[in-house]
Computed example of a mutant assay.
Amino acid sequence: MAGTDTSIKIEFLPSPAVILCEPQLGENIGTAARAMANFGLWDLRLVRPRDGWPNERAIAAASRADHVIERVRVFETLEEAVSDLNLVLATTARSRDLQKEVIGPDEAAIRMSATIAAGQGVGLLFGREKWGLLNEEVALANTIVTLPVEPAFASLNIAQAVLILAYEWRRHAGLSQKLPFDSGLLDAAPKSELVGLFEHLEGVLDQSGFFTTPEKKPGMVDNLRTALSRGNFSSQEIRTLRGVISSIDRRHLRPNPNRQKPAVKKDVGEE
């Protein structure tokens, strides 16, 4: 294939993972893998691919991006797929009810470059061909990335979106020391710890009767997760928060016997 030089050794340098959530067509997986290979990305993760894995159509569409295809990992849940990552960027063109920061591809590349230079993991999250990402999936991300597309025709093929973000990553990779970035965001804990915080808090709220209206619970959970994600908590901060939640939970189940009870005023004549 023109442009492919097998005499040049491929270097598996630290780069963003690409996560495809429930991809439907093998061809889209393959062309996304090819786009990744063009710009030096090699970590492709699939969450519940519709037609399973491996997929012959994906392999054919990858056009010899074998080093990407051979390293594909399949996950049952998105939480598992992002568990080792510190920064996750969700790509979507759809407006959301979630109060989450929205940035462009160039700013996304700056943040990815700085985070990876700090030795942390980064993921780019892409949704389904037909309807993209669900709100609960976007809630797991730190930030939304939106491309400057034509509003009347905003839908991109998955491989096209991967190609654009991979290009921006390649353009900015290694320049993190020269570009402005809030270094305080580089202490963020892995997503596995953040998901643990989510589940801990939601379990306690369930037991305490916080979710009084079942049909409203999913939206409330999404809003809670979005708010907590904005904190970019470190591992120590998450441990502290979970300690607070555990303490509140214990007090709720077993009131503190050492707490001084308020004095009861007796009526005249009582002993």
Results as ranks from 00 to 15, higher is better:
109 A>L: 11
92 T>I: 01
81 A>C: 02
111 R>T: 12
70 E>L: 07
53 W>H: 05
16 P>L: 00
56 E>P: 10
35 A>L: 11
90 A>W: 01
79 E>L: 05
79 E>V: 12
55 N>C: 09
23 P>A: 01
12 F>H: 15
63 S>R: 13
112 M>H: 08
43 D>G: 06
112 M>C: 13
110 I>R: 15
31 T>L: 08
77 T>N: 09
36 M>C: 05
89 L>K: 06
27 E>G: 15
46 L>M: 01
48 R>Q: 08
48 R>A: 05
95 S>F: 11
14 P>R: 05
11 E>D: 12
61 A>G: 11
64 R>L: 15
54 P>N: 05
14 P>G: 03
88 V>M: 01
17 A>H: 07
34 R>N: 07
25 L>R: 14
35 A>Y: 04
76 E>Y: 00
56 E>I: 09
107 E>G: 06
83 S>D: 01
32 A>M: 09
48 R>P: 03
63 S>Y: 10
32 A>E: 02
110 I>E: 12
38 N>R: 10
49 P>S: 00
32 A>V: 07
51 D>N: 14
31 T>W: 04
63 S>H: 14
65 A>V: 12
83 S>H: 08
76 E>L: 01
107 E>W: 05
110 I>V: 15
16 P>H: 02
64 R>H: 15
54 P>M: 05
26 G>R: 01
96 R>D: 00
50 R>F: 10
53 W>V: 03
13 L>Y: 03
78 L>M: 03
79 E>S: 15
38 N>V: 08
101 E>K: 13
75 F>I: 00
102 V>A: 06
98 L>A: 11
108 A>N: 09
17 A>L: 05
46 L>C: 00
88 V>T: 14
90 A>N: 07
84 D>Q: 12
27 E>W: 08
30 G>A: 11
69 I>K: 14
54 P>W: 11
70 E>F: 05
36 M>G: 11
42 W>A: 12
113 S>Q: 10
96 R>S: 14
54 P>E: 01
73 R>C: 05
110 I>D: 10
30 G>D: 07
63 S>N: 14
69 I>F: 04
65 A>Y: 10
100 K>G: 01
102 V>T: 15
76 E>I: 00
64 R>P: 01
31 T>V: 13
13 L>C: 07
85 L>N: 03
103 I>W: 04
51 D>Y: 09
63 S>K: 13
108 A>S: 14
47 V>G: 00
97 D>S: 13
64 R>V: 12
15 S>E: 07
71 R>N: 06
55 N>W: 09
33 A>Y: 02
64 R>D: 14
22 E>V: 03
58 A>Y: 12
22 E>F: 01
78 L>C: 03
95 S>P: 15
97 D>M: 09
50 R>K: 15
47 V>D: 00
39 F>S: 10
71 R>C: 09
77 T>R: 07
13 L>F: 09
73 R>V: 06
81 A>N: 04
105 P>E: 11
44 L>P: 11
96 R>A: 02
